[in-house]
Amino acid sequence: MKRVESELITNVEELLEDKKIGFFMGYENGSLPLRTSPCFVKEKEDVQRLVWNCFCTNNLSVYLVSLIPELPAGTKVGILCKGCDSRSLVNLIVEKQLKREDVLIMGISCSGMINIDKLTGNLDGGRILEVEENEEEVILKLDTGEQRFSRKDSLYESCKNCTHPTPSVYDILIRVGEHAPKSVCPDPMIAKFRQKERLERWQIFERELSRCVRCYACRNACPNCYCKECFAEQTKPRWFGLSNELSDVLFYHLVRILHQAGRCVDCGACVRACPEKVDLRLFTRMLVDEVKERFDYEPGLSPNDSHLLGVFSTDDTQEFMVEVD
């Protein structure tokens, strides 16, 4: 990790020095252990704050849409992108929210992010002094001793089933091992859910979403949710109630998730953002799989792609349509 961090820092230093970028977005250590927060580096002297570890979970591309118009014209933003982040970013380019030349993508091939809950849930009350990681393990050094966690088992679900660990598009790539794209379709969780009885599916859907308090954290964390005015808050017409009544909550999520069709890159930001820990991926990932299977389409792989719903093929399957006889 140290190699990666120093490569990152050297790169950013050079870029800033050569004025190739106006500033750089990466991660720095958070105020709490095992946490990072976004780090905006403008001056060379701040470069040392940048870190890279298995807790750099934030999808930084979410900041770009609102940020870039605020910057002086022509400012290029350097941004550290994991595989999923880069695809979000590319999707923003496809959707004309960014221009490719607005950003310098520092890609990093990613081994997956660690779900802190899986670590902290297993601590015996010790205070974390230091964290080490290697390819296999995350090692927490506590005042009570050392605790080792299998990296594989502690990954976020979205990372476990990541299809494109290496950024699809980048200007500079920092390699951390080899991470070729892999097909995880359908996601085992989705396949399992599909097998359940209809009523059980609905009950799970209801149970998960019944925790929702409509804080919209999922929407705020999602790079795709950049609408100036979300349908959920529109009047003329008002599509559904503002209440926390279940039907209103379900309406919001059904449509928000449908709006992700062909755009969601399964970065998991919504799930991590949710204060009630609603497993939104159980539903968003279904559409990711469906889109891949039905249309052989994965968003965010090339800035020249067309939007899934902005094109069609006369051969699109229509087995879902009602037939008589």
Binding site: F193, R194, R198, L199, E200, R201, W202, Q203, I204, F205, L254, I257, L258, A261, G262, F283, M286, L287, E290, V291, R294, F295, L308, L309, F312, S313, T314, D316, T317, Q318, F320, M321, V322, E323
Partner: peptide
């Protein structure tokens, strides 16, 4: 044709979350 793409996903998704597939139908 654009509708067909959209409908495929809407129908499959609503079915997935547990709404009976008979309730939402598309035809030509």
């Amino acid at each position: 044709y654009f509708a067909r793409r959209k409908f495929a996903l809407v129908k499959k998704f609503l079915e997935y979350v547990g709404i009976e597939s008979e309730r939402v139908q598309f035809s030509w």
